[in-house]
Nucleic acid binder design. Structure first.
Lengths: 187, 187
DNA sequence: AAGGGATGTTGACATTGTTCACTTCACTCT
DNA sequence: AGAGTGAAGTGAACAATGTCAACATCCCTT
């Protein structure tokens, strides 16, 4: 999949995507703080300044990463919407948390305060699209209106964050997914 | 309260606390990413290397900051416990969210993934103490056991995080505290 | 075939966290 | 009182980082 290392051409050919892929790997391995622009360039075998042809700054690279995260997240949610046989609300919650646990650092990046600080319209749009899908998927069950919907969302999101940060004590050998389902279905 | 700027003495006298105070100000103004060790030193009027007599690293300074955050948080929760007349569960939730909204960057720092990454026992202990208090305060109402308690905690924490990140759309002129109360009391 | 715009490289700069050797000063111990 | 020891601050330096400007290379259009 990667270009042959021998006789590496002057132009990479698809550097933007290669950078994103490498960055995603480093992100999940090292966390956002450990994701240096130079590291990404090094991983792809390119000079430290090369990424600037495709991203305005390190922040822009992170933004692009977060955007792809929201897109993958949105697609997961859409998958639920098409399935008629299950409880959408509960399935949404379990999928939401599972996504967070499967991609911890990406999930954290998607909600990173540092990224939200410098207004990045692309990120905001991707996030809004995800929330729209969320509302669409769960809208059928949530007839009680905004407050109930926000309460459900907060519960699911909080569960994801607390689990991610290791704040919820998990007993040895405990089935996390089962616990998540219990918590989500606890009314 | 600060030492007189004229004829500043070679030894500061109470540098550790002065650094923490200055760091807290910068943190709330600039966010964690904008909190440089040299900035803190500059704000206190001391050389860039001086903080190292009191903190092993920038991370240690951040840890100390987060610890004080958990202590203030814990004290707030204890205040609720002593008040017999109100619904502890609801009051806890509202206070929890209010603390987050009043000290956004400090709250974020307390749950910062970067800080949790390098195992800081002091932080973990402060956090555990806070959670113990939390359980103690709400324990009387939560007779339904662990799952219900976690569900309530997740809802409150998620609400705080989502509000902090501006993810929950607030309508113009809307009373946030009232909305929070509604969401928390929505069963 | 030519040349122009996109893509990469090289070298440099400011800034940051951190360390080391050094100074200053407040104490204790005789 | 006076010596000197250790805690607390200084200053210069280092490696690493994000970023930029000037230059090189190559693909694509005309």
């Amino acid at each position: 999949m990667s270009t042959s290392l021998a006789n590496a051409p002057y132009h990479h050919g698809d550097l933007r995507n290669a950078l994103l892929e490498a960055a995603l790997l480093i992100l999940e391995r090292e966390g956002e703080a450990g994701l240096g622009l130079r590291d990404v360039a090094r991983a792809v075998g390119v000079s430290p300044a090369a990424p600037y042809r495709h991203f305005d700054s390190r922040g822009a690279l992170l933004e692009a990463l977060a955007v792809t995260g929201f897109q993958r997240f949105t697609r997961l949610m859409e998958g639920i919407a098409t399935n008629d046989t299950l409880d959408h609300m509960s399935a949404m919650g379990r999928t939401y948390v599972k996504f967070a646990l499967d991609n911890p650092n990406l999930f954290r990046l998607m909600f990173s305060p540092a990224l939200r600080r410098d207004n990045r319209p692309g990120l905001r749009m991707a996030a809004d699209a995800a929330y729209r899908t969320l509302r669409h998927v769960t809208g059928q069950e949530v007839e009680a209106g905004r407050v109930a919907a926000l309460a459900a969302w907060a519960r699911v999101h909080g569960l994801a964050v607390l689990l991610l940060d290791g704040q919820i004590a998990i007993q040895a050998g405990e089935d996390i997914e089962a616990l998540v389902a219990e918590i989500i279905d606890n009314h």
